[in-house]
C-alpha cells in the first residue's frame, strides 16, 4: 500500500515538474539567448551584450519602449482617477444605473480584442482623428477603466455607509469627505486596479495594433513587425520585460508577508513593554 502511494506521489511530482518546464522553458530560453554572441536563435555561441547595445542604439526600439511606458503611465493615471470616481458614484446609485454601466463595461471585457479593435479603428477613422498617440491613449483608457471599476467597487460595498454621513454631519464638504474618509479606506482596491490597468496597457497588442499609426508603435507592435526577420534584439526587449514584471510581482507578493511579520513583531514588542 505504501509503495503504491509513494509511486503515485512521484508520478504527480513529475507531472507538475513537466508542466512547470513547459511554462518556463520559453522564458528561460529567451533570457539565455538575449546574451548570445551571434545572430542564431538556436546555437549559443558565447556570452555577450552586443544585442543589448544594439537595442539601446536602435531609435525605433527605444521609441517603442518610450511610447509603451508613457501610454501605460498616462492611461493608468487617468483610468484610475476616472474609474475610482465612477465607482464611488456607482456605489451610491440605484440598480438600474449600476446595471447599465456593468453591461457597457462587459462589452470590451467579454468581446474578443479584435472586435473591440476594429470598432475603435472605424470609430476614430470616421471622426477623422489622426491615428497615433492620441488614438492609442484613448483606446487604452477605454479598456483600462472597466478593470479599475471592477476592483474598486467591491471595496466600496464593504464600507460602512454611516461613516460618510458622519463626516458630512461633522461639517465636511462632500469632496473633502471623499478624499479624507472614503479614499483612504479603498486604497488597496485603487492600487490593485491601477496595477491591472498598467499591465493591461503595457502588454496590449491587438487593440494598439489596429488603432495606432504614423510611426507610433509600442513594444508589442515592434515585436510583431520584426518577427519576419531573425532579430535577437527581440530577446533583449523580452528579457527586460520579463525582469521588470517578475520584480514587480515578487515585490507585490512578498510585501504583504513582510508587513504581516512586522505587525506581529510590533505586537510582540508591545506585549513585552506593557
Amino acid at each position: 500500500m505504501n509503495k503504491k502511494i509513494g509511486l503515485k506521489h512521484i508520478f504527480s511530482k513529475i507531472f507538475i515538474g513537466l508542466m512547470m518546464f513547459f511554462f518556463y522553458l520559453p522564458i528561460v530560453y529567451t533570457v539565455i539567448f538575449s546574451f548570445n554572441s551571434s545572430k542564431s536563435l538556436s546555437k549559443f555561441t558565447g556570452f555577450s551584450f552586443i544585442w543589448y547595445e544594439r537595442l539601446f542604439k536602435s531609435n525605433d526600439m527605444m521609441d517603442s519602449i518610450f511610447y509603451t511606458v508613457v501610454i501605460a503611465v498616462l492611461a493608468t493615471f487617468i483610468s484610475t482617477i476616472v474609474g475610482t470616481i465612477t465607482a464611488i458614484g456607482l456605489s451610491k446609485s440605484n440598480k438600474v444605473l449600476r446595471g447599465i454601466v456593468a453591461q457597457i463595461n462587459d462589452l470590451p471585457v467579454m468581446n474578443p480584442d479584435i472586435v473591440t479593435a476594429i470598432g475603435l479603428l472605424m470609430f476614430f477613422s470616421s471622426l477623422a482623428i489622426k491615428k497615433g498617440f492620441i488614438t492609442l491613449l484613448l483606446a487604452h483608457i477605454m479598456f483600462c477603466i472597466p478593470f479599475v471599476i471592477l476592483s474598486v467597487l467591491p471595496k466600496l460595498r464593504s464600507l460602512d455607509p454611516n461613516i460618510l454621513d458622519a463626516a458630512l454631519d461633522l461639517g465636511c464638504t462632500p469632496i473633502k469627505a471623499l478624499i479624507k474618509v472614503i479614499v483612504p479606506q479603498i486604497t488597496s482596491g485603487i492600487l490593485a486596479g491601477a496595477l491591472i490597468a498598467f499591465t493591461m496597457s503595457f502588454d496590449d497588442f491587438v487593440i494598439s495594433y489596429f488603432v495606432t499609426g504614423n510611426g507610433v508603435n509600442n513594444i508589442s507592435i515592434m515585436i510583431y513587425t520584426m518577427t519576419k526577420r531573425v532579430n535577437p534584439t527581440i530577446n533583449v526587449i523580452s528579457t527586460l520585460i520579463i525582469a521588470v514584471i517578475t520584480i514587480i510581482l515578487v515585490i507585490i507578493n512578498i510585501a504583504p508577508i513582510i508587513k504581516e511579520r512586522k505587525l506581529k513583531m510590533e505586537v510582540k514588542k508591545n506585549e513585552k513593554t506593557s
Partner: peptide, 16 residues
C-alpha cells in the same frame, strides 16, 4: 507569473 508577461514575447520564444 507568465500570464503577466507580454503574449507576443512568450509566443515568439517558441520559434527558437
Amino acid at each position: 507569473l507568465p500570464t503577466w508577461i507580454n503574449m507576443l514575447v512568450r509566443t515568439y520564444a517558441w520559434r527558437g
